[in-house]
Nucleic acid binder design. Sequence first.
DNA 1: CATCAGGGCCCTG
DNA 2: CAGGGCCCTGAT
Length: 324
Amino acid sequence: MHMTLTYRTIFILAPKPPFHFDGTFHKPSHFPNRLKLEDWKPGTYWQTIRFRKRLFGLMVENKGTVTKPKLKVSVFSQSRLSREVVESLKREIAYRFELEKDLREFQALAKRDPRFYPVFKKWMGMRNSGQYNLYELLVISVVLQNATVRRSSQMLDALLGRFGIKVIFGGKVLHAIWLPKVMARVSEQELRRLKVGYRAKFFKRLSQDFARGKIDELALRNKPAEDMKKELVRLYGVGPETARILLFEVFHHDAAFDHVSPWQQKIYSRLFYGKRLVAAEKIRRDIQRRYGKYAMLAVHYIWEDVFWRRKHEHIPWLEKEIRL
DNA sequence: CATCAGGGCCCTG
DNA sequence: CAGGGCCCTGAT
């Protein structure tokens, strides 16, 4: 299935300074796949975006600086957008990319950290962006489970090839994740044929639950982190690691650093201790003590920074852990 | 060729 | 609360 979006609506957004455009709109640690959901080059970002079950093409251009940020946003659609839809989209984009976030407290914390201050300073104004909605990031998190990067990419591509929507806009060809109801009516066997293994059952049940409206993403946004986590873990296929990803990336809960998975443990050990392997529990405690309610956000800065560096310099120990 | 573990989670005892 | 099993794939 594919669609071409020809109608273009343009508006300007002014994020709260400081704002780091490229750090916010490109996350080099995310695994690459063939059927891309988003694309980026310095100063420009594209993605497909679902809002109220409608699909749009989004292009964001950097027209400002870190201290005087300004975004030129183009929304591509099939038909003319009402004033109300445009205003709601602005709020949604602001939520997903934390355009209004007040970083002063975090900055103060960063300044008191002699070791990583250079990293925080380099990325000053970077947001923890949540490009996808809850269902979409859930799909991505599930293909991540108990798999190497290459296999995760394969699974996502297989799913997108079968259920995804090819979206053409502004000279770009990107893909979008299907609506839950589409996958809800497919048999587990058919999902298994896409080689997602035992995750087929997760996808089936999750899609059914979302299609039936069992989860209200917007209502969740207003709940305290603890309640949010309890509800997320109740979803079939969501455990501590997936809940952490969702809490941080969809709901911007900056403290969500309560679980360290084995491969993260290896990378954190190198980054924070210069050692091969430090106990996950120790890492968790140390980071929480040092960064408190910004624990996950601080780690995000340091994590993405090393993946940015990887673009230009060879980091042998990192290459070994990524295992493409 | 066989065996193993991987960006976890569910289920059982 | 600990531990086995799970789909598939690339590494060893």
